[in-house]
C-alpha cells in the first residue's frame, strides 16, 4: 500500500492535482455557502461518475474488453452497501456517518467485486463482442432480480432516507473526496505497475502476452473484480446521496452514459480524460436544461463520430497530423538527427 502511494507517474500527478484542486474548490464553495442549489446537487454525482468512468476505463481502455453492465456492478454495490448501512442505522441509531459509510462502501464494493469475478470467469471463454453481450445480460439479470427481491424493496426501491445525511453535499464531501482520490491513486498506480503493463499487453495482443508468460486468466478476472469494486463503491455513494434507490435507474442507459464518458475522455491508460469527461457530462446537462431532451441523441452522435474519427483507417492521415506526438516528433527530429550523427562518429 505504501509502495503503491509513493510512486506517482508525472501524467497521473496532473490528474491527481486536478482532482485535489476540484475537491478543494467544492469544499470552499460549499462551506462558505457560495454554492447554488444546482451546484450543490451536482457535486456528489460528479464524484461518483468520476469513479465510475475511471473504473470503466480500466476495463475498456486498459484491458480492452467492453463492459455494457457497469451500471449493474454499481447497482450491486448500491443495494448491498446501502442495505448494510440501513440495517446498521436501524440497530444503532446513534451510529455516525463516519462509521457506517466506510463499512457500507467496503461491503458494497466487495459484493460488486464478487459479481465482477463471477462475470470475469465467462470472460475467459468468450471475448470481444460476445463478452460485451455477457456483461449486458448480467446488467439485465441484476436489474430483474433486484426488482423481484422484497428485501431490497422490489420495484419500489430501497428507502435510504435514514442513511442520507442532512446537508448532504457538504457532509458527504470529505468522504467522497477521500474515496475518489484514493481510488484514482490506486487505479492509476495499478496501470503504471508491472501488473498494469501485463494488462495492457493482453489488450494489445493476447496470444503474444500469453506466450511471454503473462497469466491472462488471472489478470482478466482481476480487472473485472477491481473495476466492479470501484463501481460498487460509487453505487454506495449514490445511495447515500438520494433518499431512494430504484432498480430501473441502473439500466442499460446508465452503462452507456458511463461508456460515453470513457470514450469522450479517451480510452487508454491516461485517466485525466475520463475525469474531465465525467465532470463535463454531469455538469452540462444540468446547466443546459433545454439540452436534456437532446442529451442521449447528442451522446449517440458523439459516440459514432468519435469512433469514426479515432479508428477509421480512412482518417489515419488526418489523425496523425493532428496528434501531439507528430508535432513533438517534428520538433525533436532535428535534435535526434544530430545525436545520431554524433553517435555514428563515436562508433
Amino acid at each position: 500500500m505504501k509502495n503503491m502511494l509513493s510512486k506517482i507517474n508525472r501524467k497521473d500527478a496532473l490528474t491527481l492535482g486536478v482532482l485535489v484542486a476540484m475537491f478543494l474548490v467544492f469544499f470552499v464553495v460549499l462551506s462558505t455557502g457560495m454554492a447554488s442549489n444546482q451546484l450543490k446537487n451536482m457535486i456528489i454525482p460528479m464524484s461518483y461518475y468520476i469513479l465510475l468512468a475511471i473504473s470503466l476505463n480500466l476495463m475498456v481502455g486498459v484491458l480492452g474488453e467492453l463492459s455494457l453492465g457497469h451500471a449493474g456492478f454499481m447497482s450491486v454495490g448500491a443495494y448491498v452497501g446501502c442495505y448494510v448501512a440501513v440495517t446498521l442505522v436501524e440497530k444503532y441509531p446513534s451510529m455516525p456517518l463516519a462509521a457506517y459509510l466506510p463499512i457500507a462502501m467496503v461491503i458494497g464494493g466487495l459484493a460488486a467485486a464478487a459479481f465482477g469475478v463471477i462475470i470475469g470467469i465467462p470472460a475467459l471463454r468468450v471475448k470481444g463482442d460476445y463478452l460485451a453481450i455477457v456483461t449486458l445480460a448480467f446488467g439485465e439479470i441484476v436489474r430483474t432480480l433486484v426488482q423481484n427481491m422484497s428485501v431490497f424493496g422490489g420495484a419500489l426501491g430501497l428507502d435510504t432516507g435514514d442513511i442520507r445525511p442532512k446537508n448532504t453535499a457538504l457532509t458527504l464531501l470529505p468522504f467522497t473526496a477521500a474515496v475518489v482520490i484514493l481510488s484514482a491513486i490506486l487505479i492509476m498506480n495499478l496501470v503504471r505497475s508491472k501488473h498494469g503493463r501485463s494488462i495492457m499487453a493482453i489488450r494489445d495482443n493476447r496470444i503474444a502476452a500469453e506466450a511471454c508468460g503473462i497469466n491472462v486468466n488471472f489478470y482478466k478476472v482481476a480487472v473485472f473484480g477491481i473495476s466492479a469494486f470501484f463501481a460498487g463503491v460509487a453505487g454506495v455513494l449514490y445511495g447515500h446521496n438520494f433518499t431512494i434507490i430504484k432498480p430501473e435507474t441502473f439500466g442499460f442507459n446508465m452503462s452507456i452514459e458511463i461508456l460515453v464518458m470513457v470514450v469522450l475522455g479517451g480510452m487508454g491508460s491516461n485517466m485525466l480524460g475520463s475525469v474531465v469527461a465525467a465532470v463535463v457530462l454531469t455538469v452540462l446537462p444540468e446547466i443546459l436544461r433545454d439540452f436534456q431532451d437532446y442529451r442521449m441523441l447528442i451522446y449517440s452522435v458523439m459516440l459514432v463520430l468519435i469512433m469514426l474519427f479515432t479508428s477509421a483507417p480512412a482518417f489515419a492521415g488526418i489523425r496523425e497530423r493532428l496528434s501531439l506526438g507528430f508535432i513533438k516528433e517534428k520538433l525533436t527530429a532535428k535534435k535526434k538527427a544530430k545525436k545520431k550523427s554524433k553517435e555514428g562518429d563515436g562508433a
Binding site: G64, L66, G128, D129, V263, M296, L297, S300, M307
Partner: peptide
C-alpha cells in the same frame, strides 16, 4: 469506414447508432 478497425470500436459505433435511432424516434 470502420472496416479493419478493432472490433471494440465497431461495437461502440453500433451502440451509438442504436441510441441514435431510438432517440430520433423519441424526438
Amino acid at each position: 469506414p470502420l472496416r479493419g478497425a478493432p472490433s471494440l470500436n465497431v461495437l461502440i459505433t453500433a451502440i451509438g447508432i442504436s441510441y441514435l435511432l431510438q432517440n430520433l424516434a423519441l424526438l
